[in-house]
Design a protein around this nucleic acid. Structure first.
Length: 535
DNA sequence: TTGCAGTCAATATC
DNA sequence: GATATTGACTGCAA
């Protein structure tokens, strides 16, 4: 149905969301026969016929920079790039090479940043824009991301961490060189990877890059080279600045002296970073527990009482919600991998909801067990979070939890002060589950909400209780199927079968149906006999 | 307008 | 010095 709709009434590109664009990218790649052959070979049919049509679309793609539009970072690759992006077998080759063979990350990553030692390397202020992948593949990374099978983000980060620590390579270097991210982001990413299915296209990119990097047999060597180079440059700079007698002002700071003003005033202009005092944080956390989505009024009051800017309070709530969400992902992952001990591969994909636990330090104060959103229509949900896995949320809660949560809200769901109406449900922890006392000012600020919080739908876990690992893994058919495109892609990434369905009865049914379809496909493929489909 | 994802970058901690 | 934390920001989607 979706296909029919899409084929008969395609939306203009500009009107499409990222997700909405994905099918078109896929179609384009498919239409672009050779690419399709290279990227999604049907097992056992690699030499099979390839469709060659729609060059017009392909042209459009090239000229209109379809791919790059989704990734401004690489827009350069859109222009008739040296390697004629997107066309023909070359890109196929590069794609394949990228993921399967040593990928040319390092040298190429420095294209925009020539490795000459004279060039103050990344260590200087501008960690930006590395963009690791080779020029000819800059476009391909997007394709890869779009086409990528479900990657085991947790496993990838784990391996990356291992490699980095084993070889004494820093996150900064790795981030700037390979991922195009700063140290903090890398640290965050490595420590708290989100499960693949919760990531946006953009969010997936670093993981694809990491995977590619891991696949590169020379990855360490190359990074070591970079390290040496950086060191050399640093020494050189240092040496020259010392010999210049006048210790040159901190070249760092990243201030553009070019703007006329001297660095000094600029420095002064710099907004000092707000650091919240522990009491303030505590107060905010308590307020959060009362009301994860406070009204502007509440925010205002909180800000006043805590003597903070409202924007700070707003930011704090945003960040806190978001970070709590991630903490939960981690728990899911860990629970998932524990639960399935050995079945290894894609814990991140599984999102098995484990018993909630206390949050990590970054989100401390979140000890509360999450409660279910009882009887809720579940219509709401964070864009990425729920939108990507609404079913997960739907089935999220353990019965026991449900039972607990139910009474809290069932009676007066409508009593919510409406602040939350139509909003994404609050996350993980929440008042309902662990009604923390709110003794102080924050409590008062949240008071108006607090009154209702007991009856308001309680925060919900993003992906609570799902079936056990075994069940999960059985939800998808075996990978031996000869005709499974994703498998081929996975093989490109050197990955095992992706995790699939999270379970609930409906999903199980679907999975069973899928199994049967695939089974028939397999049989058909092996017998090479036509089948009639009746799904 | 609001919430979120993703990220930066200052700062804290190890 | 490397890594972790976290307030702020940007861009996007609903």
């Amino acid at each position: 149905g979706s296909v029919s709709d899409m084929l008969s009434r395609p939306k203009p590109w500009s009107k499409l969301t990222q997700k909405g664009r994905e099918p078109f990218i896929r179609m384009q790649l498919w239409l672009n026969g050779e690419l399709g052959q290279g990227v999604l070979p049907v097992q056992g049919q690699q030499q099979g016929p390839v469709l060659h049509s729609a060059t017009s679309l392909q042209d459009a793609l090239q000229q209109g920079c379809v791919s790059s539009e989704s990734t401004p970072k690489t827009s350069a690759s859109c222009s008739p790039a040296p390697e004629s992006p997107m066309s023909s077998s070359e890109s196929v080759k590069s794609l394949t090479e990228l993921v399967q063979q040593p990928c040319p990350t390092i040298e190429t990553s420095k294209e925009g940043k020539p490795p000459e030692s004279s060039d103050p390397p990344a260590s200087d202020s501008q960690p930006t824009t590395p963009l690791p992948l080779s020029g000819h593949s800059a476009l391909s990374i997007q394709e890869l991301v779009a086409m990528s099978p479900e990657l085991d983000t947790y496993g990838i980060t784990k391996r990356v961490k291992e490699v980095l620590t084993d070889n004494n390579l820093g996150q900064r270097l790795f981030g700037e060189t390979i991922l195009g991210l700063t140290q903090g982001s890398v640290s965050d990413l490595l420590a708290r990877p989100k499960p693949w299915h919760k990531l946006s296209l953009k969010g997936r990119e670093p993981f694809v890059r990491m995977q590619l990097w891991l696949n590169d047999p020379n990855n360490v060597e190359k990074l070591m080279d970079m390290k040496r180079l950086e060191k050399k440059a640093y020494m050189k700079r240092r040496h020259s600045s010392v010999s210049d007698s006048q210790p040159c002002e901190p070249p760092s700071v990243g201030i553009d002296y070019s703007q006329g003003a001297s660095p000094q005033p600029q420095h002064q202009l710099k907004k000092p970073r707000v650091v919240l005092a522990p009491e303030e944080k505590e107060a905010l956390k308590r307020a959060y527990q009362q009301k994860p989505y406070p009204s502007p009024k509440t925010i205002e009051e909180l800000a006043t009482q805590l003597n903070l800017k409202t924007s700070t309070v707003i930011n704090w709530f945003h960040n806190y919600r978001s970070r709590i969400r991630r903490e939960l992902f981690i728990e899911e992952i860990q629970a998932g991998s524990q639960g399935q001990a050995g079945a290894s591969d894609s814990p991140s994909a599984r999102s098995g909801r484990a018993a909630p636990s206390s949050e990590g330090d970054s989100c401390d104060g979140v000890e509360a067990t999450e409660a279910e959103e009882p009887g809720a229509t579940k219509s709401q949900g964070g864009p990425a979070d729920m939108a990507t896995a609404p079913a997960d949320r739907e089935e999220a809660t353990q019965p026991a939890e449900k039972a607990k949560a139910q009474p809290l809200s069932s009676g007066t769901p409508a009593q919510d002060d409406r602040e939350d109406a139509g909003r994404p449900r609050p996350l993980p922890e929440g008042p309902a589950a662990a009604p923390a006392p709110v003794p102080n000012l924050a409590a008062r600020a949240a008071g108006e909400d607090a009154a209702t919080s007991a009856t308001a739908p309680a925060p919900e876990a993003p992906g609570a209780a799902r079936a056990g690992p075994a069940e999960r893994s059985s939800a998808l058919p075996s990978t031996s199927a000869p005709a499974r495109r994703p498998s081929s892609l996975q093989s490109l990434f050197g990955l095992p079968e992706a995790a699939g369905a999270r379970d609930n009865p409906v999903r199980k049914k679907k999975a069973a149906n899928l199994n049967s379809i695939i089974h028939r496909l397999e049989k058909a493929a092996s017998r090479e006999e036509p089948i009639e489909w009746e799904f």
